[in-house]
Amino acid sequence: MEIDELKKIWVSLDQQIGKQNIVKENILKEVILAKSDKALSRLLNFDIFGLVLTIAVIPFLLFVLSQDVLKPEILRILLWFFIAYMIIDLVPMIWRMVLLSKVDFSKDVAGNIKNIQRYNVFIRVEKTITFVVIMPILIFYLVFPVFSMNLELWRAGALIGACLVTILFAYWQYKRVYDKNISSMLKSLEELRDLKEE
């Protein structure tokens, strides 16, 4: 066999595959919808990061409490509240991750939609608790010393800055990380379901 013969074989291969439709349109559509995989891994990574951060922060907060530096007493009580909330929140955090890990795009679409919707419920509940309960307490916690103690300007500025950063981060995480990726996944999965029903 010579190189020219390879060319002939190549032409015959071309003709052979030219006679049939290689990939059906619906399969192509499914492949491009599989980009949901990326949204899923983004959510999973963000949740893992949140879990690790929470586990790391709890001992630090316990250490702060043990130092007996928090005056007045309301700050100590609020810190206990935060620690308790963080510990309790570990359970839904882990459960959420379990739900995400159950999502498998090569399997049943309806099951995946159900898991993502359940995950979404967890996120919505957490979002409500965060903005209605946790955020106001945290803001109070950070701003309280500004008014109650005679702080230097830079300290007061730093505390107010920390408040703003916390609010912006919370907003960003729900809007840009959770809402965006969850809706992208749900949209793709619903399109997939429609495609399968066609």
């Binding site: 595959i17 990939v23 059906k24 499914e30 995989d37 795009f105 090569s106």
Partner: peptide, 12 residues
């Protein structure tokens, strides 16, 4: 992952 099995049937 993805749609390997369906693709597998389509690709010679």
């Amino acid at each position: 992952s993805g749609f390997s099995s369906e693709l597998q049937n389509s690709l010679i």
